[in-house]
Design a binder for these strands. Sequence first.
DNA 1: ATGGTTTTTACTGCGTC
DNA 2: GACGCGGTAAAAACCAT
Length: 333
Amino acid sequence: MPLKQKEAKELDSFKEYDQTSCPICGKPLIGDQDKGELICSSCGLVVEGYNECKGPEWKAIDMREKEKRVRVGAPQTFLLHDLGLSTEIGPENKDFHGKPLSSYMNMSIKSMKKWQNRIRTVSSEERNLAVVLSKINEVSDALKLPKIVTETAAHNYRIFAKKGLAKSKSIIGMAGASIYLACRKFEIGRSLKEIAKLMNVDKKIVAKYYRFMIKENGKEHVPPTSIGRYVSKLVNVMKIDPRVERLALYIMSKTLCSKTFEGKAPSGLAAAFVYISSVLLGERTPQREIAEAAEVTEVTVRNRSREILDNFLIRQRLKVLPKGYEIKSNYTV
DNA sequence: ATGGTTTTTACTGCGTC
DNA sequence: GACGCGGTAAAAACCAT
Protein backbone atom coordinates (compact mmCIF):
# COMPACT_ATOMS: atom_id res chain seq x y z
CA MET A 1 0.00 0.00 0.00
CA PRO A 2 1.41 3.41 -0.87
CA LEU A 3 2.61 5.29 2.14
CA LYS A 4 0.25 8.19 1.81
CA GLN A 5 -2.79 5.98 1.58
CA LYS A 6 -1.63 4.00 4.53
CA GLU A 7 -1.21 7.09 6.62
CA ALA A 8 -4.55 8.40 5.57
CA LYS A 9 -6.06 5.16 6.74
CA GLU A 10 -4.21 5.30 10.00
CA LEU A 11 -5.45 8.77 10.71
CA ASP A 12 -8.96 8.18 9.46
CA SER A 13 -10.46 10.24 12.23
CA PHE A 14 -8.80 13.29 10.75
CA LYS A 15 -9.92 15.34 7.83
CA GLU A 16 -7.51 16.62 5.27
CA TYR A 17 -6.99 20.34 4.85
CA ASP A 18 -6.77 21.26 1.21
CA GLN A 19 -5.17 24.66 1.37
CA THR A 20 -2.46 24.23 3.94
CA SER A 21 0.90 22.61 3.46
CA CYS A 22 3.87 21.84 5.63
CA PRO A 23 6.28 24.79 5.74
CA ILE A 24 9.25 22.45 5.82
CA CYS A 25 8.54 19.83 3.21
CA GLY A 26 5.58 21.41 1.43
CA LYS A 27 3.42 18.34 1.75
CA PRO A 28 -0.24 18.54 2.71
CA LEU A 29 -1.16 18.77 6.33
CA ILE A 30 -3.59 16.50 8.02
CA GLY A 31 -5.62 18.13 10.67
CA ASP A 32 -8.50 17.88 13.03
CA GLN A 33 -10.69 20.74 11.98
CA ASP A 34 -12.42 21.18 15.29
CA LYS A 35 -9.29 21.21 17.34
CA GLY A 36 -7.01 23.08 14.96
CA GLU A 37 -4.28 20.50 15.06
CA LEU A 38 -2.01 20.23 12.06
CA ILE A 39 0.19 17.25 11.35
CA CYS A 40 2.38 16.96 8.29
CA SER A 41 1.23 14.00 6.23
CA SER A 42 4.78 13.29 5.23
CA CYS A 43 6.97 13.71 8.25
CA GLY A 44 4.35 13.05 10.86
CA LEU A 45 5.51 16.04 12.78
CA VAL A 46 3.14 18.54 14.13
CA VAL A 47 3.48 21.81 12.41
CA GLU A 48 1.66 23.68 15.09
CA GLY A 49 -1.43 23.57 17.18
CA TYR A 50 -2.38 26.87 15.69
CA ASN A 51 -5.47 27.73 17.58
CA GLU A 52 -7.20 26.98 20.74
CA CYS A 53 -9.65 24.15 21.00
CA LYS A 54 -13.02 25.80 21.35
CA GLY A 55 -15.42 22.99 20.66
CA PRO A 56 -16.98 20.64 23.15
CA GLU A 57 -15.12 17.47 24.02
CA TRP A 58 -18.15 15.31 23.32
CA LYS A 59 -19.96 14.29 20.21
CA ALA A 60 -23.70 14.30 19.78
CA ILE A 61 -25.35 11.95 17.35
CA ASP A 62 -28.66 13.75 17.05
CA MET A 63 -30.24 17.02 18.15
CA ARG A 64 -31.86 15.51 21.21
CA GLU A 65 -28.59 14.29 22.48
CA LYS A 66 -26.99 17.60 21.72
CA GLU A 67 -29.60 19.43 23.78
CA LYS A 68 -29.12 17.02 26.60
CA ARG A 69 -25.40 17.50 26.68
CA VAL A 70 -25.13 21.19 26.02
CA ARG A 71 -23.44 23.31 28.64
CA VAL A 72 -21.21 26.33 28.89
CA GLY A 73 -17.53 26.63 29.55
CA ALA A 74 -14.26 25.44 28.09
CA PRO A 75 -13.95 21.85 26.93
CA GLN A 76 -12.89 19.17 29.30
CA THR A 77 -9.20 18.41 29.23
CA PHE A 78 -7.04 15.69 30.71
CA LEU A 79 -4.24 18.16 31.09
CA LEU A 80 -5.64 19.88 34.15
CA HIS A 81 -5.82 17.92 37.33
CA ASP A 82 -9.50 18.77 37.79
CA LEU A 83 -10.22 18.18 34.10
CA GLY A 84 -10.61 21.93 33.72
CA LEU A 85 -14.03 21.81 35.26
CA SER A 86 -13.50 23.94 38.34
CA THR A 87 -14.40 27.58 38.64
CA GLU A 88 -11.80 30.13 37.78
CA ILE A 89 -11.86 33.69 39.01
CA GLY A 90 -10.49 36.01 36.36
CA PRO A 91 -7.47 38.20 37.02
CA GLU A 92 -8.92 41.57 36.07
CA ASN A 93 -10.76 43.46 38.78
CA LYS A 94 -13.76 44.56 36.81
CA ASP A 95 -17.42 43.95 37.17
CA PHE A 96 -19.97 42.61 34.73
CA HIS A 97 -20.11 45.91 32.84
CA GLY A 98 -16.36 46.31 32.70
CA LYS A 99 -16.25 48.97 35.39
CA PRO A 100 -13.58 48.78 38.07
CA LEU A 101 -14.69 47.26 41.35
CA SER A 102 -15.14 49.23 44.53
CA SER A 103 -12.35 48.84 47.05
CA TYR A 104 -14.60 46.82 49.34
CA MET A 105 -15.57 44.41 46.56
CA ASN A 106 -11.96 44.24 45.49
CA MET A 107 -10.86 43.04 48.91
CA SER A 108 -13.64 40.54 49.02
CA ILE A 109 -12.80 39.12 45.61
CA LYS A 110 -9.15 38.92 46.52
CA SER A 111 -9.89 36.82 49.54
CA MET A 112 -12.20 34.64 47.47
CA LYS A 113 -9.40 34.07 44.99
CA LYS A 114 -7.09 33.07 47.75
CA TRP A 115 -9.50 30.50 49.11
CA GLN A 116 -10.39 29.32 45.66
CA ASN A 117 -6.74 28.53 44.99
CA ARG A 118 -6.45 26.76 48.30
CA ILE A 119 -9.40 24.47 47.82
CA ARG A 120 -8.77 23.75 44.17
CA THR A 121 -5.92 21.41 44.85
CA VAL A 122 -6.85 19.61 47.97
CA SER A 123 -5.35 16.21 48.42
CA SER A 124 -1.68 15.45 47.93
CA GLU A 125 -2.60 13.14 45.08
CA GLU A 126 -4.32 15.96 43.30
CA ARG A 127 -1.40 18.24 43.84
CA ASN A 128 0.86 15.54 42.51
CA LEU A 129 -1.32 15.09 39.49
CA ALA A 130 -1.23 18.81 38.82
CA VAL A 131 2.57 18.81 38.86
CA VAL A 132 2.89 15.80 36.56
CA LEU A 133 0.33 17.09 34.11
CA SER A 134 2.03 20.44 33.82
CA LYS A 135 5.32 18.63 33.24
CA ILE A 136 3.71 16.51 30.53
CA ASN A 137 2.37 19.64 28.97
CA GLU A 138 5.71 21.36 29.05
CA VAL A 139 7.67 18.49 27.55
CA SER A 140 5.04 17.80 24.90
CA ASP A 141 5.31 21.41 23.93
CA ALA A 142 9.06 21.14 23.57
CA LEU A 143 8.59 17.99 21.47
CA LYS A 144 6.03 19.82 19.37
CA LEU A 145 3.46 17.10 19.82
CA PRO A 146 -0.12 17.57 18.68
CA LYS A 147 -2.64 18.24 21.36
CA ILE A 148 -4.31 14.88 20.88
CA VAL A 149 -1.05 13.18 21.70
CA THR A 150 -0.47 15.36 24.74
CA GLU A 151 -3.98 14.64 25.91
CA THR A 152 -3.41 10.94 25.40
CA ALA A 153 -0.22 11.14 27.43
CA ALA A 154 -2.08 12.89 30.24
CA HIS A 155 -4.83 10.31 29.97
CA ASN A 156 -2.30 7.47 30.18
CA TYR A 157 -0.85 8.91 33.33
CA ARG A 158 -4.27 9.39 34.89
CA ILE A 159 -5.18 5.78 34.28
CA PHE A 160 -2.09 4.60 36.08
CA ALA A 161 -2.36 7.08 38.89
CA LYS A 162 -5.97 6.10 39.44
CA LYS A 163 -5.10 2.43 39.67
CA GLY A 164 -2.50 3.38 42.24
CA LEU A 165 0.24 2.06 39.99
CA ALA A 166 2.25 5.26 40.01
CA LYS A 167 3.02 5.00 43.67
CA SER A 168 6.62 4.69 44.79
CA LYS A 169 7.78 5.44 41.28
CA SER A 170 9.58 8.40 39.86
CA ILE A 171 6.80 10.73 38.90
CA ILE A 172 8.77 12.31 36.11
CA GLY A 173 9.71 8.87 34.85
CA MET A 174 6.05 7.91 34.69
CA ALA A 175 5.25 11.14 32.90
CA GLY A 176 7.95 10.36 30.34
CA ALA A 177 6.64 6.85 29.84
CA SER A 178 3.12 8.25 29.34
CA ILE A 179 4.36 10.60 26.66
CA TYR A 180 6.33 7.87 24.94
CA LEU A 181 3.33 5.56 25.00
CA ALA A 182 1.17 8.27 23.48
CA CYS A 183 3.74 8.86 20.75
CA ARG A 184 3.85 5.16 19.98
CA LYS A 185 0.09 4.97 19.79
CA PHE A 186 -0.03 7.78 17.28
CA GLU A 187 3.08 6.54 15.48
CA ILE A 188 4.93 9.74 16.01
CA GLY A 189 8.65 9.32 15.72
CA ARG A 190 9.93 10.37 19.09
CA SER A 191 12.55 8.28 20.77
CA LEU A 192 12.80 7.40 24.42
CA LYS A 193 16.17 9.09 24.36
CA GLU A 194 14.73 12.41 23.26
CA ILE A 195 11.98 12.37 25.83
CA ALA A 196 14.28 11.32 28.65
CA LYS A 197 16.76 14.00 27.73
CA LEU A 198 14.15 16.72 27.72
CA MET A 199 12.81 15.60 31.07
CA ASN A 200 16.23 15.25 32.60
CA VAL A 201 15.66 11.66 33.64
CA ASP A 202 17.56 8.49 33.07
CA LYS A 203 16.42 6.81 29.89
CA LYS A 204 16.47 3.45 31.65
CA ILE A 205 13.84 4.55 34.13
CA VAL A 206 11.52 5.79 31.42
CA ALA A 207 12.05 2.57 29.49
CA LYS A 208 11.33 0.51 32.57
CA TYR A 209 8.11 2.34 33.30
CA TYR A 210 7.12 2.17 29.68
CA ARG A 211 7.46 -1.60 29.70
CA PHE A 212 5.55 -1.68 32.92
CA MET A 213 2.74 0.32 31.35
CA ILE A 214 2.57 -1.98 28.36
CA LYS A 215 2.43 -4.99 30.64
CA GLU A 216 -0.30 -3.55 32.82
CA ASN A 217 -2.28 -2.32 29.88
CA GLY A 218 -1.78 -5.31 27.65
CA LYS A 219 -5.16 -5.22 25.95
CA GLU A 220 -4.43 -2.08 24.04
CA HIS A 221 -2.59 -2.46 20.79
CA VAL A 222 0.56 -0.42 20.32
CA PRO A 223 1.86 -0.39 16.75
CA PRO A 224 5.54 -1.19 16.23
CA THR A 225 7.86 1.76 15.78
CA SER A 226 7.51 3.17 12.34
CA ILE A 227 10.97 3.45 10.85
CA GLY A 228 9.52 5.47 8.00
CA ARG A 229 8.53 8.19 10.44
CA TYR A 230 12.08 8.31 11.71
CA VAL A 231 13.37 8.55 8.16
CA SER A 232 11.05 11.45 7.38
CA LYS A 233 11.90 13.18 10.58
CA LEU A 234 15.63 12.84 9.99
CA VAL A 235 15.41 14.24 6.48
CA ASN A 236 13.31 17.12 7.70
CA VAL A 237 15.35 18.15 10.70
CA MET A 238 18.54 17.90 8.69
CA LYS A 239 17.02 19.81 5.81
CA ILE A 240 18.25 17.35 3.19
CA ASP A 241 16.76 17.19 -0.30
CA PRO A 242 13.27 15.65 0.04
CA ARG A 243 14.10 13.33 -2.83
CA VAL A 244 16.46 11.60 -0.43
CA GLU A 245 13.50 10.92 1.79
CA ARG A 246 11.50 9.35 -1.01
CA LEU A 247 14.37 7.17 -2.07
CA ALA A 248 15.09 6.18 1.51
CA LEU A 249 11.48 5.20 2.05
CA TYR A 250 11.49 3.30 -1.20
CA ILE A 251 14.59 1.32 -0.32
CA MET A 252 13.12 0.76 3.10
CA SER A 253 9.90 -0.66 1.72
CA LYS A 254 11.87 -3.07 -0.46
CA THR A 255 14.33 -4.12 2.19
CA LEU A 256 12.58 -4.14 5.50
CA CYS A 257 10.89 -7.49 5.03
CA SER A 258 14.29 -9.11 5.40
CA LYS A 259 14.78 -10.83 8.71
CA THR A 260 18.25 -9.35 8.98
CA PHE A 261 16.85 -6.26 10.62
CA GLU A 262 14.80 -7.84 13.35
CA GLY A 263 15.83 -6.51 16.71
CA LYS A 264 17.85 -3.67 15.30
CA ALA A 265 17.35 -0.18 16.63
CA PRO A 266 14.91 1.72 14.39
CA SER A 267 16.86 4.96 14.67
CA GLY A 268 20.02 3.28 13.38
CA LEU A 269 18.16 1.73 10.47
CA ALA A 270 16.51 5.01 9.58
CA ALA A 271 19.89 6.73 9.66
CA ALA A 272 21.33 4.09 7.33
CA PHE A 273 18.48 4.39 4.84
CA VAL A 274 18.93 8.13 4.76
CA TYR A 275 22.68 7.83 4.43
CA ILE A 276 22.56 5.36 1.56
CA SER A 277 19.97 7.41 -0.27
CA SER A 278 21.91 10.60 0.12
CA VAL A 279 25.01 8.92 -1.25
CA LEU A 280 23.08 7.39 -4.14
CA LEU A 281 21.69 10.76 -5.10
CA GLY A 282 25.07 12.38 -4.89
CA GLU A 283 24.25 14.42 -1.81
CA ARG A 284 26.95 12.99 0.42
CA THR A 285 25.72 13.97 3.83
CA PRO A 286 28.50 12.97 6.23
CA GLN A 287 27.85 9.88 8.35
CA ARG A 288 28.76 11.89 11.38
CA GLU A 289 25.95 14.38 10.84
CA ILE A 290 23.31 11.77 10.18
CA ALA A 291 24.45 9.74 13.15
CA GLU A 292 24.30 12.79 15.34
CA ALA A 293 20.80 13.74 14.21
CA ALA A 294 19.57 10.17 14.63
CA GLU A 295 21.26 9.91 18.01
CA VAL A 296 23.25 6.83 17.13
CA THR A 297 26.95 6.34 16.48
CA GLU A 298 28.68 6.35 13.12
CA VAL A 299 29.56 2.72 13.64
CA THR A 300 25.91 1.82 13.81
CA VAL A 301 25.19 3.79 10.64
CA ARG A 302 28.01 1.96 8.92
CA ASN A 303 26.95 -1.46 10.14
CA ARG A 304 23.32 -0.99 9.13
CA SER A 305 24.35 0.48 5.80
CA ARG A 306 26.53 -2.49 5.05
CA GLU A 307 23.75 -4.90 5.96
CA ILE A 308 21.26 -3.05 3.80
CA LEU A 309 23.64 -3.10 0.86
CA ASP A 310 24.33 -6.79 1.43
CA ASN A 311 20.63 -7.51 1.30
CA PHE A 312 19.69 -5.24 -1.48
CA LEU A 313 21.24 -5.23 -4.92
CA ILE A 314 20.87 -1.51 -5.33
CA ARG A 315 21.79 -1.20 -9.01
CA GLN A 316 19.64 -4.09 -10.07
CA ARG A 317 16.46 -3.07 -8.31
CA LEU A 318 16.60 0.65 -8.62
CA LYS A 319 15.78 0.44 -12.32
CA VAL A 320 12.14 0.71 -11.36
CA LEU A 321 12.64 4.11 -9.77
CA PRO A 322 10.57 7.03 -11.02
CA LYS A 323 12.05 9.62 -13.35
CA GLY A 324 14.56 12.07 -11.97
CA TYR A 325 16.21 9.56 -9.71
CA GLU A 326 19.52 8.79 -11.31
CA ILE A 327 22.12 7.11 -9.25
CA LYS A 328 25.19 9.21 -9.07
CA SER A 329 27.30 7.31 -6.64
CA ASN A 330 29.71 4.51 -7.29
CA TYR A 331 28.15 1.89 -5.10
CA THR A 332 29.18 -1.28 -6.80
CA VAL A 333 26.92 -3.70 -5.03
C1' DA B 1 22.08 -13.93 37.72
C1' DT B 2 23.05 -15.27 32.98
C1' DG B 3 23.92 -15.57 28.31
C1' DG B 4 23.05 -13.95 23.73
C1' DT B 5 22.54 -9.91 20.96
C1' DT B 6 23.15 -5.08 19.78
C1' DT B 7 25.26 -0.60 20.41
C1' DT B 8 28.98 2.27 21.87
C1' DT B 9 33.72 3.47 22.72
C1' DA B 10 38.19 3.89 21.20
C1' DC B 11 41.53 3.20 17.97
C1' DT B 12 43.90 2.27 13.34
C1' DG B 13 44.72 2.68 8.51
C1' DC B 14 43.54 4.49 3.92
C1' DG B 15 42.41 7.89 0.42
C1' DT B 16 41.35 12.70 -0.81
C1' DC B 17 41.25 17.64 -0.77
C1' DG C 1 47.25 17.85 8.16
C1' DA C 2 42.22 17.67 8.46
C1' DC C 3 38.46 15.15 7.10
C1' DG C 4 35.46 11.35 5.78
C1' DC C 5 35.16 6.57 5.61
C1' DG C 6 35.63 1.55 6.66
C1' DG C 7 36.95 -1.63 9.74
C1' DT C 8 37.97 -4.17 14.45
C1' DA C 9 38.12 -5.46 19.45
C1' DA C 10 36.39 -4.88 23.68
C1' DA C 11 33.23 -2.67 26.88
C1' DA C 12 28.64 -1.46 27.89
C1' DA C 13 23.82 -1.75 27.40
C1' DC C 14 19.86 -4.32 26.54
C1' DC C 15 16.57 -8.12 26.89
C1' DA C 16 14.53 -12.64 27.68
C1' DT C 17 14.86 -16.37 30.53
